[in-house]
Design a binder for these strands. Structure first.
Lengths: 211, 211
DNA sequence: GCATGATTGGAATGTCAATTCCAACTCGAC
DNA sequence: GTCGAGTTGGAATTGACATTCCAATCATGC
């Protein structure tokens, strides 16, 4: 069995200091554009203009457009998770959960509810058409859900959360509420739906507290 | 103030029997393609081939691609809601809610979890870039959420659901769980996330039952 | 300082999409 | 059956986009 043709992967090469910087600049410009217009709606010329680079630079660093899209997925995942820390790593109380979700709601309001979730939007667009993108999105959601589950598990280990609670399922449900809530908020241009969605799930978790 | 330029609207004209049929055929082919590849990922030539029509027919009936996209949104809304009836109009018990959500989960399994929600996917793609599409999507979600809210309201009116329950917020939360759950299921290729998401919200509603 | 590979610019290529145009055809009302 | 509106085919137009190429420049390890 021969090596399957891997698209979007330029041969591993040494990057010079300036090279790394150019690469980053391209990813950031692409991420920004793709957040607003989608991956399919963002052209290479668009990215060239936004990043101030030539076409050859993009193809030099990413091989092809798909390669760039994959890099953007990973970049958005890293960026969004980093932005949520340290809160994300301390979701072991109802108050912490509410505070964390509330922040995302405020961010959504701040941008006028334009655009949904940076990861979710890419997921919706790319999950079906691009196998390698889907794989990275699976990993993105896993990396996001993990800390939520851990926080709930800690509450349970401490005896604060009922033994009957399925912490993994609750973490998934909360992530789903965030995604669905963001989508409804984006469409309705109001964060209310997001807040109601996450609030319902957190209320549910609260009802599972011991005592 | 002059009439704003309305894109995508062919002049209101009488449609002959065959014309109506052609129009329907185009919408259905477009809806199917756009469900799998997105609106942006579906070209007019694609639709021509799938529907067996010429380009002039598409432009004759829909004005331009945006007009067709709007028609597809409305069509998917009508189709999806029709498919959920009569269950959708009788969501006034926990069992009815579970049965209704379960069906969607089974449909998702049946298609191997490829594709998410017919409306949600379009929403994610079009909400930001296309004002008239967003308006129709608002209406689509409202038409969907209404019957959910009504069912919950009936439960509350009958005294089965606590007075403290905010039926409107709960309906939104359930719709958000469906959307977010579908997205995670689509990415993970497993309906588990969907089922956990809706289950959490329905469990929450159940905990608000009187008694 | 030099060799080698990294980086960059910018034009060229080929494909394909959206849309327009016009001529031909069909159907239904009178 | 005839006339006008509704319908259809298919070619032509225009523009954008992904990608490639080549030649030039730059950085760095030795």
């Amino acid at each position: 069995m021969s090596t399957p043709a891997k698209t979007g992967e330029p041969k591993r090469q040494r990057l010079t200091k300036g090279g790394r910087k150019t690469r980053e600049r391209i990813i950031e410009a692409a991420a920004e554009l793709m957040f607003h217009r989608g991956a399919g709606g963002t052209s290479i010329p668009d990215i060239q203009a936004a990043a101030g680079v030539s076409a050859s630079q993009i193809y030099h660093y990413f091989g092809d457009k798909q390669g760039l899209v994959l890099a953007v997925i990973d970049h958005q995942t890293d960026t969004q998770l980093a932005q949520q820390r340290p809160l994300l790593d301390n979701l072991d109380s109802i108050e912490a959960l509410r505070e964390w979700c509330d922040r995302a709601g405020n961010r959504q309001d701040a941008r006028g509810c334009e655009g949904g979730c940076e990861i979710g939007s890419l997921a919706s667009e790319l999950a079906d058409g691009d196998q390698s993108a889907r794989t990275r999105l699976v990993s993105a959601f896993d990396r996001w859900e993990g800390p939520i589950r851990s926080g709930l598990a800690r509450m349970q280990a401490r005896g604060e959360l009922s033994e009957r609670a399925d912490t993994a399922a609750l973490a998934t449900a909360l992530l789903a509420a965030i995604q669905g809530g963001m989508l409804l908020s984006q469409v309705r241009r109001s964060s209310t739906a997001y807040r109601q969605a996450v609030s319902a799930v957190i209320d549910h978790i609260e009802s599972l507290l011991v005592r």
